[in-house]
Design a protein around this nucleic acid. Structure first.
Lengths: 196, 196
DNA sequence: GTCAGTTCGTAACAAATGTTACATACCAGC
DNA sequence: GCTGGTATGTAACATTTGTTACGAACTGAC
């Protein structure tokens, strides 16, 4: 990035810490800042009017939430939720500078368009997963994604939580996890799934 | 739009006509131009390695394909297809000017970010449709979307074609269309569905 | 230790969707 | 008219997913 851009970013943004489980962006509250992930892990989820949810993707260090950009620009409140999957440190940049910086800095354009590209791809992958694959494959992909994002082979979640993120029921997840265990792709313990 | 931008657009772009059913963007061929729809209707579809498809959304007059932008910038070939749903007239703009114009023209930034916003919303709506709703509702939404985009109450498609766009089988669509007919939401004729 | 709350396993059943098979209707060309 | 190809209707069945119900195993507070 251009040194001038870095300086502006540092001068104008502010640090924000979110602890695990904390809300970064709620469905109704319109954001006026764009979050850049410095450390930790955020989770982006789609929410339905009657409380149902689907996991969309993770935001890792160095990434930003493309949706919050468009969301802020338009002033609309799209129905999705960003929460902290791990304790995270964010750099919050007021949206009012967006247009200015996009015009001024080539590297900022690259950053923003890159974010869009990545998010588009993730959404398309999500659609693939939901439309073309059955629940067992969707579940396994979810486990692998989580492993990838957290960098750990251990996933500390209950069947109920996973069911919620995939918009299905606990019983279904238990059934399929048992199957994955029989196929020796995972091992199960209480509140913990281990990827093999 | 700024007059200077309009002039550049007119000088640098070229006209392209596509007739109904024609391919605008194929999954492998990497695009070097960004298509702006002047007249007609384009259809954007996601394609799976083994030939399965899902309808994503339509592009109407004045709109552009956000995905082709990011796709070109990165030089990647995302797997989606753009075809002409009706005879269409496009204005093709070389991607090499993108960065320059985004930096230079405020209204171009608005245009591009607006395109992203709209497409993001459409993809999210698609995800909602697929994850939260059953096939009957998905089908009805598809019919209404098509009516909206074409501006006509008559949809000239076979059950087979619709099944393909929703990634299901002809028999399922026939079943559900019959149901919609009983509910007096549509009327059916050969190769033609009429929305009531 | 007991107890309440949570998590997980499993069975039995219901509903939605996918598959196969075949009959019927329609249309275009001859 | 007849004929072959296409589009639709419908039944019977398989598979996948969702639901309800209940028991067993674990956990933490007391």
């Amino acid at each position: 990035m251009e040194p001038a851009l870095v300086e502006e970013l540092l001068n104008i943004g502010r640090l924000k810490k979110v602890s695990e489980g904390g809300m970064v962006m709620s469905p109704d509250g319109s954001m006026s800042e764009m979050p850049i992930v410095l450390e930790g892990l955020l989770k982006v989820t789609r929410k339905d009017p009657d409380g149902k949810e689907v996991f969309l993707y993770f935001l890792e260090g160095g990434e930003t939430c493309a949706m919050s950009i468009t969301c802020c620009i338009e002033g609309k409140t799209s129905s999705f939720i960003v929460t902290a999957e791990k304790d995270s440190i964010l750099w919050m940049v007021p949206m009012t500078y967006m247009d200015r910086w996009v015009a001024k800095y080539r590297s900022f354009r690259k950053f923003v368009f890159g974010a869009y590209q990545t998010r588009f791809d993730e959404l398309l992958t999500t659609i693939d997963s939901v439309v073309f694959h059955k629940m067992d494959e969707r579940l396994y992909k979810y486990l692998l994604d989580t492993k990838q994002a957290t960098g750990s082979f251990e996933i500390h979640k209950t069947h109920e939580q996973i069911a919620h993120e995939l918009n299905t029921s606990r019983v279904v997840i238990s059934r399929l996890l048992k199957q994955l265990e029989r196929e020796e792709k995972i091992e199960q313990h209480r509140n913990l799934i281990e990827i093999l």
